[in-house]
Every structure is written in structure tokens, then in C-alpha cells.
């Protein structure tokens, strides 16, 4: 396979140190990648006057693949989220987040392997908000038929290609009969084309309760944007927290892979943060571009380090630095 050109977005806070460790591990896998480093996030606001410079946009548009470190989204007021802007700009409509148990992290469950497919461009994330009187704010929840059909199509195709057995649509259509109703109707319509996959639906509040009570019953979940945001974090918590939670934002022609955790600015420069989530996002990216051997090598190396439990970052109960953990993974990869 030829050399890939991939946009690297280190982000801010702990992002640059995490992404540097991740780049070394990915390069160590033998895959040929020419990295294009571009700025994004609060740190480039002073430099470029924007969270998302035009040069960064052009690089992603050209390369079609990017991997991104964490960025901070100002709360309440101020600038728009760079993450949401990217998703909208490139129509990255499918947010895929796997939640699998990590061996070294002791959890109360034996088996969790849940894939969430979050619709990534609609819902209350359409950024249509108004103060309609001095004491009333409203936010439009926008759910469309074509947007709902394509995330359902994406989920069923992914499930079929990866041998998954069951997909459930998560909704609140008993209350939001039109918005969540259209999402559920579209899911049911698409499900008819995939009789080999068991299709069902579950109301979002019941889904949350069932997830914390018996997560092993779930396989794949398809959700509108807001429920997907919340439940994918819930799933990440079930398997050991955001330090091990990768994610992919996929569109028809462009994809951006990123961890779901924040930039942890209080740890910036200390090189102690767990790079696993960004690294696993990199593994997803390698699989997406057809580099299965490299992806598998990294995954096995990481699992070996976690199973040995000698070189772990603080969140996993160890004292290793970001770099020491990455170096241990590279040494483990050499033995595979």
C-alpha cells in the first residue's frame, strides 16, 4: 500500500504531547504516513484569530483523513466549538464509538462490546437558539429524514461488514413524536434491507438504566446526536473511562479520528496523561484506510502492555509517563 498523507491536529492542553506519542507508535507499526501538522483550538486563537484556521480546513479537505488531539470548547458564551464546526463543515455525519472492556481495568462486568453510532450533524446541535423573551430561551431540535436514513444505513453497513448481530435505535419517540419519531421511522425503513441483523428500538431513559444494570445485552446502538453524545460517554465509563475511549467522525469523503476526552489543561506539559484514546482512534483510522496489519500490531502491543500491567499511566493505576507508556507499546509491538 502506498504512502498516506494524513492531517495531524495536535490540539491544545495535553493534546500535543499525546499526539506526538501516538505518531511515534503509528510510525513504528511500519505504515507509511506523511504527516501534515495543522493548528486547531484555543491555542491558535491568538495566532490566527480563529479556532479553526483556513489552512487547517484546506489540509483536511485535500487529505480526506485527519487525526485530532483534544481541544477545549468554551462553555456558555464565546467561540463556537472547533469539533462541531469540523463535523458540520465536512458533513461527518457518523460518529462511531466502540466501548470494549480493557483487561487491566477491573470492572464489575465480564463482557462489554458496544458500538455506538451517533448522528453527528443534526438534533439540538444545529445551533439554532434564540432568546424568545427576556426569560425564555429556545433551541430548535432539527431531525431530518435524509439525515436519519443515512446514519441508519451507515450503522447497518458497518454492522454487517464487522459481523455484528443486533442494532437498536435509541429514542424518545413516545414524547417527541415528530423529531424522534422520524428518526425511528427511518431506522425501521432501513432495517428492512438487512434481515440478517436483528433490529429493535429502546427508549433512551430505559436504555441508560439497562446499560448500567446489564451492559452485556447490547451490541450496536444508533442514536440522534444528543443521546449519542451522552450515552457514548456512559458506555466509555462502563469500560474504564474516557482515557480508553476512541472515536471516529466519518462522512462520505472525509474522516476525522479523535479521542472523546478533553484537553486536560491542568496536566499540560507534565507528560502523564494516558494517550490510549487517541492511539485507539489511530487504530480505527488505520483500519479505515485499509492498514489492518499495522492496526492489529498496535492493538496487540497495547493489550500486551496493559495485560502485563507494569508500565501504566496514572489513570490505570501506574506511574509511567505518556512517553514511557508509548515506548513500552513499541517494544511490545517488536515482539509480535
Amino acid at each position: 500500500m502506498g504512502k498516506h498523507v494524513i492531517t495531524m491536529l495536535p490540539g491544545e492542553g495535553t493534546g500535543p504531547e499525546i499526539c506526538e506519542a501516538v505518531r511515534k507508535v503509528i510510525d513504528h507499526s511500519g505504515v507509511e504516513i506523511a504527516w501534515e501538522y495543522e493548528d486547531i483550538g484555543l491555542d491558535c486563537l491568538e495566532k490566527h484569530g480563529t479556532l479553526l484556521p483556513e489552512k487547517t480546513i484546506k489540509s483536511i479537505a485535500k487529505n480526506k483523513i485527519a487525526i485530532k488531539g483534544p481541544t477545549t470548547t468554551p462553555i456558555g458564551t464565546g467561540h463556537k466549538s472547533a469539533n462541531v464546526t469540523l463535523r458540520k463543515l465536512f458533513d461527518l455525519y457518523a460518529n462511531v464509538r466502540p466501548a470494549k472492556l480493557i483487561p487491566v481495568l477491573k470492572r464489575p462486568w465480564d463482557q462489554i462490546d458496544i458500538l455506538t453510532f451517533r448522528e453527528n450533524t443534526e438534533d439540538s446541535y444545529a445551533a439554532i437558539e434564540h432568546m424568545v423573551s427576556d426569560e425564555v430561551a429556545q433551541c430548535l431540535k432539527v431531525i431530518t429524514w435524509p439525515g436519519s436514513v443515512r446514519i441508519a444505513e451507515f450503522a447497518f453497513k458497518w454492522a454487517k461488514a464487522n459481523g455484528r448481530k443486533k442494532i437498536q435505535c435509541v429514542h424518545k419517540a413516545n414524547i417527541m413524536k415528530m423529531t424522534d419519531g422520524i428518526f425511528l421511522d427511518a431506522f425501521r425503513e432501513v432495517a428492512k434491507k438487512y434481515p440478517e441483523i436483528e433490529a429493535g428500538d429502546i427508549i433512551v431513559d430505559n436504555c441508560c438504566m439497562q446499560l448500567v444494570r446489564n451492559p452485556a445485552q447490547f451490541d450496536c446502538l444508533v442514536l440522534p446526536n444528543l443521546y449519542g453524545d451522552i450515552l457514548s460517554d456512559l458506555c466509555a465509563g462502563l469500560v474504564g473511562g474516557l482515557g480508553f475511549a476512541p472515536g471516529a467522525n466519518i462522512g462520505d469523503n472525509c474522516s476525522i479520528f479523535e479521542a472523546v476526552h478533553g484537553s486536560a489543561p491542568k496536566y499540560a506539559g507534565m507528560k502523564k496523561v494516558n494517550p490510549s484514546a487517541v492511539l485507539l482512534s489511530g487504530v480505527m483510522m488505520l483500519r479505515w484506510i485499509g492498514e489492518e496489519a499495522a492496526a492489529s500490531k498496535i492493538e496487540k502491543g497495547m493489550n500486551k502492555v496493559l495485560a502485563e500491567a507494569k508500565t501504566l499511566t496514572y489513570d490505570a493505576g501506574g506511574t509511567a509517563s505518556t512517553d514511557q507508556y508509548a515506548e513500552a507499546i513499541m517494544r511490545a509491538m517488536d515482539t509480535i
Binding site: D91, A126, I128, T144, D252, N253
Partner: peptide
């Protein structure tokens, strides 16, 4: 002008952007 909350005028619009028939 925005479509599903994404600005489609003025400025850059991805050729991948899916538009519905309702514009803010």
C-alpha cells in the same frame, strides 16, 4: 444562510454537505 444549522452562504461549502429543503 444555514441548512441544518451549517452555514451554506456566504463562504466555503463542502461538496459533501447534504442539504435539505429548509434554510434558515
Amino acid at each position: 444562510i444555514s441548512n441544518r444549522g451549517t452555514k451554506v452562504w456566504p463562504g466555503y461549502v463542502s461538496e459533501d454537505l447534504m442539504l435539505v429543503n429548509w434554510y434558515r
